[in-house]
């Protein structure tokens, strides 16, 4: 007797669980707004990557063409595969002191693994990861970038 009750209840249990599964997929098909596929080349204008996305390293400049990089080369040391080279120079300040500033912030995108260690190691928050991910170019040499803009200088008060 017990076996028969178990047999019959197992059928109803199975049907219940099957209907529960069908309710989930039924919800999906009846809510086309929840579709997560993005049509990439068409939605280029409106496409927004998520906040933590690591596209490429950029040196932030403000509107007066100033950056926050002091040339301490902590990022160069932190980089595990040598994607960053900091070429610094010494300039003479108006008060006669000599100061070290960056000449070129060279970034090899072709070698970068987007590990984020350079950004974490930067003491002045000069560099960050951008959202840009369309890196394809026709020549490998274009992947070596100089990140500081021409004529840019160190922001006041950053040391």
């Amino acid at each position: 007797m017990k076996a028969i009750i178990k047999y019959i209840s197992s059928i109803f249990k199975a049907l219940k669980s099957l209907f529960r599964g069908m309710a989930v997929t039924g919800h999906y098909i009846s809510h086309p707004k929840e579709i997560i596929t993005q049509q990439y080349p068409e939605n280029r204008e409106t496409l927004k990557m998520f906040d933590m996305f690591r596209g490429e390293v950029v040196l932030t400049h403000n509107e007066r063409n100033e950056h926050r990089c002091t040339g301490c080369s902590a990022c160069e040391v932190a980089c595990p595969n040598g994607s960053i080279e900091i070429i610094s120079k010494r300039i003479e300040m108006p008060d006669g002191k000599k100061k070290k500033v960056i000449d070129k912030f060279v970034y090899h995108l072709s070698m970068c693994t987007f590990c984020n260690l350079c950004i974490l190691s930067c003491p002045t928050d000069a560099i960050k990861m951008s959202q840009d991910f369309e890196h394809a170019v026709f020549d490998r040499s274009q992947l070596t970038k100089v990140l500081n803009k021409t004529g840019s200088k160190l922001m006041e008060g950053v040391r």
């Binding site: 999906y28 098909i29 086309p32 929840e34 579709i35 997560i36 596929t37």
Partner: peptide, 10 residues
């Protein structure tokens, strides 16, 4: 198409 919609794809 239907399989895609069931899986929240296009």
């Amino acid at each position: 198409k239907i399989c895609a919609f069931f899986q929240l794809r296009l």
